[in-house]
Design a protein around this nucleic acid. Structure first.
Lengths: 193, 193
DNA sequence: CGGCTTCTTGAAAAGTATCAAATATAGTGG
DNA sequence: CCACTATATTTGATACTTTTCAAGAAGCCG
């Protein structure tokens, strides 16, 4: 929780919650990392509704509706900042940019559910790689298997098998996998005060 | 072609092209019907990238980039109008509305590729029903099997089998299917002049 | 360490895709 | 107006991919 009160910036560890559907709050610009969006209706099911990567705007709907439509959770470590930066009203040009990146990201999300399992996982990895600086993506910089499975509409087992294949083929850096109990940086821990 | 030159409105028969990726043009508000968006890169493959229904804005990226990012084709008969209506510059509030509906529609597209085949087709039909006035959707108001297959990431055969099931279960109005050669209202026929 | 979670892996089952052929229909041209 | 053609839909049998269900291994945290 390295956040000073009133700061416009925010850091988020992988797996942590940025905001929850229904809450009030401001929009965010994602400076680093990747975030998944989930529809609130579906409780235990996947609920996956979209993804955001570096440069995308999240939660712009609060400026219209007052509260968030989706729940946002970090897939990888994230850095964010309030949006829009200075003014409380975004410029039309900035809104257009947000709109067109939202459309592109929607298309990306659809594409990650298209074709064979290996293709889909490959596409997800490619998207994450666009976020990352290094070209050879390490296993540690990927989202949890569960997230990858829900994004690609596959099962955890299938994603695991495919990652093994990709590592064997040299398409993915072989590295330690992230197991064990996640940090209890609590999905539900309120971030205000 | 009941369009008078300079008119801000436009009609489109099912299967017809509204605009192509790369072209220049204006944004549209979809007044009636539904439209599919396709990424241009993928030639023969599905290429499906998103869907738009009544009330959605299409092609807003032209205001930023100058030309369309996706190719837009009518799934069902459509009525559209230039957007924004009067002014050449859209209001921030209108842009926000476009943005949040784009996100919602992206989530819808993702959801239509989630779960078993029957579930997915059901979701697509539900979305189309939201467009339509009548609650019991007729077979004729649905997109072509090929479109439904590409949207749901299934095959034509599977979709066909599922529609038969839905009709048998009474969840879908049993009606004539739309076969035969489509109108040659040409995908490529230029609409200017 | 003990407990909890994630990841890996196996064998069998289920669901879809494939491939192919038959059927139905709207438009076209004679 | 009718046959003809191109396209859309239905349907069947088989093959393949992925899911299921289960158990075990590996890692983090207190």
């Amino acid at each position: 929780m390295q956040e000073t009160s009133g700061s416009a910036e925010r850091q988020l560890a992988a797996g942590n919650l940025l905001y929850q559907a229904g809450q009030g709050g401001n929009a965010w610009l994602l400076l680093e990392g990747s975030i998944r969006l989930d529809r609130p209706e579906v409780r235990d099911e996947s609920g996956f509704a979209g993804i955001a990567i570096k440069g995308d705007i999240l939660g712009a709907e609060t400026m219209l509706l007052g509260n968030y439509t989706y729940t946002a959770t970090a897939l990888t470590p994230c850095k964010l900042t309030r949006w829009p930066e200075g003014s409380s009203q975004p410029e039309p040009a900035a809104l257009l940019k947000a709109l067109s990146s939202a459309e592109r990201r929607g298309a990306d999300a659809v594409a990650m559910r298209c074709g064979e399992a290996a293709t889909r996982v490959r596409r997800l990895i490619a998207l994450m790689a666009a976020t990352s600086s290094s070209r050879q993506l390490s296993r540690l910089m990927l989202p949890a298997l569960r997230d990858m499975a829900e994004i690609t509409a596959l099962t955890i087992g299938t994603v695991s098998r495919i990652l093994v294949q990709l590592q064997a083929a040299g398409d993915l850096a072989r590295s330690e996998t992230r197991r064990g109990r996640p940090r209890n940086t609590a999905l539900a821990k309120p971030n205000f005060l």
